[in-house]
Write a protein that binds this DNA or RNA. Sequence first.
DNA 1: CAGTTGTTCAACTCTTTGGTTGAGTATGCG
DNA 2: CGCATACTCAACCAAAGAGTTGAACAACTG
Lengths: 116, 116
Amino acid sequence: MADDQLSLTFAALADPTRRAILARLADGEATVNELAEPFDMSLQAISKHLKVLERAGLISRGRQAQWRPCRLEGAPLADASAWIDRYREIWHDRLGRLDEEIQRIQRHRTEETGDT
Amino acid sequence: MADDQLSLTFAALADPTRRAILARLADGEATVNELAEPFDMSLQAISKHLKVLERAGLISRGRQAQWRPCRLEGAPLADASAWIDRYREIWHDRLGRLDEEIQRIQRHRTEETGDT
DNA sequence: CAGTTGTTCAACTCTTTGGTTGAGTATGCG
DNA sequence: CGCATACTCAACCAAAGAGTTGAACAACTG
């Protein structure tokens, strides 16, 4: 995998487990054990996922006694969103045109058949 | 890699070559050769990248004689953007709070003797 | 028809990823 | 101290990714 920031972010997001972890962290900080609890997976596997998220800058980690609380960091998400948004116009256009097309067809049908 | 739609989309975006291809396609349809031209990479490699993008639904392909023109499809981008946007409030809040915190600290420094 | 162009398929290599288990480190508590 | 808790590190494995080369297919051109 490429190691530029955007690639790291998207790669980190390309896994349901990691997305679920981020969703959990949106509700506030959590420890590794708390994050691992919902998953049928070893603690070490979760630890690895957290490392991926950390490398992507999506989370940061503190130290409180033997706990390493994780916190969501939004900045890379903002960058990823900004990248995608460069295409927002395009997909809006496309979807907009699709809507128009559907409406056109339905008008057509109504005119011709007198249908609903 | 997980094969749900969102994972496929993010995984497809997690590569600079593929992102560059999408950027190129934002300007309009292109053939495989046209897409491959900027890259120092075999045509077959580009073909593979296109397959990844196609599997993620990010592009669709036509047939014109021996050419297979590619077109950008926005729908998965819209989904990806929507997923990230669920965290927009959080990252805005966080960045906002960070600003406030910095300002608070700086006020503090100025008011007191200047030390932490 | 043969030849050229555009593209894909197949097989191979090398690296990364996502999981495992087992051992090791760090902190708090009796 | 000794022990439990929270977590990480290391080694391993199977599967997937990203690239290569060589061969094949498809459609146009002379």
